[in-house]
Simulated scan of single mutants.
Amino acid sequence: MSDTSILVLLGSLRAASSNRLLAEAAVDAAASDVTVTVFEGLAEIPFYNEDIDIEGHVPAAAVKLRDAIAAADAVLLITPEHNGTIPAVLKNAIDWSSRPFGVGSIVAKPVAVIGGAYGQFGGIWAQDEARKALGIAGASVLGDLTLSIADSAGRFTPQHPRDDEEIMTKLGAVISGVTAAAQAA
Rank of each mutant, 00 (worst) to 15 (best):
V103M: 12
I167H: 02
D163Q: 13
S176T: 13
K109N: 02
L134C: 05
T157W: 12
M168H: 01
G119T: 03
A153W: 09
E165N: 11
E165W: 01
G138I: 06
Q183I: 00
G177P: 12
A150V: 03
G143T: 14
R99S: 10
P100W: 00
R155N: 12
K132M: 14
A181K: 03
V174R: 07
A150F: 02
V174L: 11
G154T: 02
A181G: 10
R162E: 01
W125Y: 13
R155P: 12
E129Q: 12
Q183L: 12
K170W: 03
G138Q: 09
K132L: 15
V141Q: 11
I175P: 05
D164M: 02
S140L: 15
R155T: 08
R162P: 01
R99Y: 08
R155C: 03
G119L: 09
G116P: 10
A182P: 04
L171D: 03
E129W: 00
L134F: 12
S148H: 12
Q183C: 07
G177N: 07
V107Q: 13
R131Y: 08
F101D: 12
I124E: 15
T179S: 10
G119R: 01
Q120C: 07
L142R: 03
H160T: 01
H160I: 04
D128S: 15
A126W: 00
F121L: 14
Y118N: 13
A173Q: 14
G104H: 05
G102N: 05
L171P: 07
I106V: 14
I106F: 04
S105Q: 09
Q127C: 06
G135E: 09
P110T: 00
M168F: 01
I175M: 03
A181T: 09
I114C: 11
P100G: 09
V174S: 07
A139K: 08
V141I: 04
A137G: 10
Q159C: 03
E165V: 09
D163M: 03
A180S: 14
T146R: 15
A108V: 11
G154L: 03
R155G: 04
F101H: 12
I167Y: 03
F101I: 03
R162V: 06
G116Y: 02
H160A: 14
I114K: 01
A182Y: 01
I114M: 06
S148A: 15
S140H: 13
S105V: 05
L171Q: 08
I114A: 06
I136G: 06
V111Y: 10
G123T: 01
G135A: 07
Q183N: 14
G122F: 06
I124Y: 14
L145N: 08
V178F: 10
I106G: 08
A184L: 12
V111I: 05
Q159T: 13
L145F: 05
A180P: 08
A130S: 13
M168V: 00
V141F: 05
Q183S: 14
A184W: 00
A130N: 11
G135D: 07
A182C: 06
I175H: 02
R99I: 04
T146C: 11
P110W: 02
K132V: 12
G172I: 00
V174I: 13
L142C: 07
